[in-house]
């Protein structure tokens, strides 16, 4: 019959095809699992085709996504008012009781000022695609690529704080590994006592998107609500120094572990990323305007 001719065929043949395809997949996995993958050119070739398509789709669908705001119900707005009033009273309490915070703020201020004084140059970009969580990696695509001066291992941030780093570029798009990914390790520094440590992502987003901070010096206890900023590495690769990452939410220590673990709540909202800035070297020229000197802060 018609179907036998094409799809079904003898079971033997179909099993042979299955065997071949499984073998092909395993070969690809083996090749790509190496650090210097021979598949990288293929990946960027696919990216060069799919990236612009994603960009066009994002541009076409953005108005519909924004329209979602109109449908927020009266009830949810009322809830917002209740939450905000509660928060307001809590903040009022804090203002009157904590001169200690001022000291903290001064230290933090000094740190963030260094960031704006060193004058990072930023290229602004928008998020156009998000890697599905069922792929178990936390990545997004942004609509600026190598033609805008972007390259691997550049810092990505937004108004709230550190977002991630560029892991791959095509001509017009770039892939960003978010700091909440399990593969991401960021050097961090505590705002109050300048102690350093490493932040690792947990891989989940939304309200449970958290980072684990492991301090190098286990004699130091991070205090709650302490701010963590990037520690920075040589030449700002992959992270430049002084970018706020998040706030200490809780501290755990077990006798077995040599160092203390702090849970960090990131400043950036990873479920609603839109406009981001990519830190580029000074004097970068590309097809996009480069924001320099205190534009952001």
């Amino acid at each position: 019959m018609a179907r036998r001719g094409y799809g079904g065929g003898p079971a033997d043949k179909s099993r042979r095809v299955l065997g071949l395809l499984v073998l092909a997949s395993l070969t690809v996995i083996t090749l790509d699992a190496r650090t210097d993958s021979p598949l990288d050119p293929v990946r960027s070739a696919v990216g060069a085709v799919v990236g612009p398509l994603e960009d066009a789709t994002a541009t076409a669908t953005r108005p519909f996504a924004d329209a979602g705001g109109f449908f927020r119900t009266n009830k949810s707005l009322r809830n917002d008012i209740a939450t905000l009033s509660a928060e307001n009273s809590r903040l009022r309490g804090q203002v009157s009781t904590e001169p200690l915070d001022r000291q903290r703020l001064a230290a933090l201020d000094a740190l963030t000022r260094t960031a704006s004084e060193t004058g990072y140059s930023l290229v602004a970009a928008r998020v156009i695609a998000m890697g599905p969580v069922q792929s178990f990696t936390r990545t997004v695509t942004i609509d600026a690529g190598s033609s805008a001066g972007l390259a691997k291992d550049m810092t990505v941030l937004n108004n709230d704080g550190l977002v991630g780093r560029v892991v791959q570029t095509t001509r017009s798009t770039a892939t960003v590994l978010l700091i909440i990914d399990t593969d991401s390790v960021v050097g961090g520094r505590l705002g109050t006592n300048a102690e350093i440590g490493f932040l690792r992502g947990r891989g989940s987003i939304g309200d449970s998107g958290r980072l684990d901070l492991e301090l190098v010096d286990n004699a130091v206890t991070p205090s709650r609500d302490d701010v963590v900023v990037t520690w920075g590495s040589k030449n700002g690769v992959p992270y430049v120094a002084g970018i706020p990452i998040g706030r200490v939410e809780s501290v755990t220590s077990s006798p077995r572990q040599s160092s203390r673990l702090a849970v960090i709540r990131p400043f950036a909202d990873f479920s609603a990323l839109d406009v981001v800035g990519v830190v580029v070297p000074k004097g970068t020229r590309g097809d996009r305007p480069v924001i320099t000197e205190g534009g952001a802060r």
Binding site: L21, A24, S25, L26, T27, V28, I29, T30, L31, D32, A33, S37, L39, V42, R43, V46, G47, V50, G51, E54, A129, M130, G131, S135, F136, T137, T139, V140, T141, V167, Q168, T170, T173, T175, V176, L177
Partner: peptide
């Protein structure tokens, strides 16, 4: 292979 995938290629295949 399509961006923003960053896992080892061949796994979804």
């Amino acid at each position: 292979l399509a961006p923003p995938a960053d896992h080892v290629a061949g796994r979804w295949a």
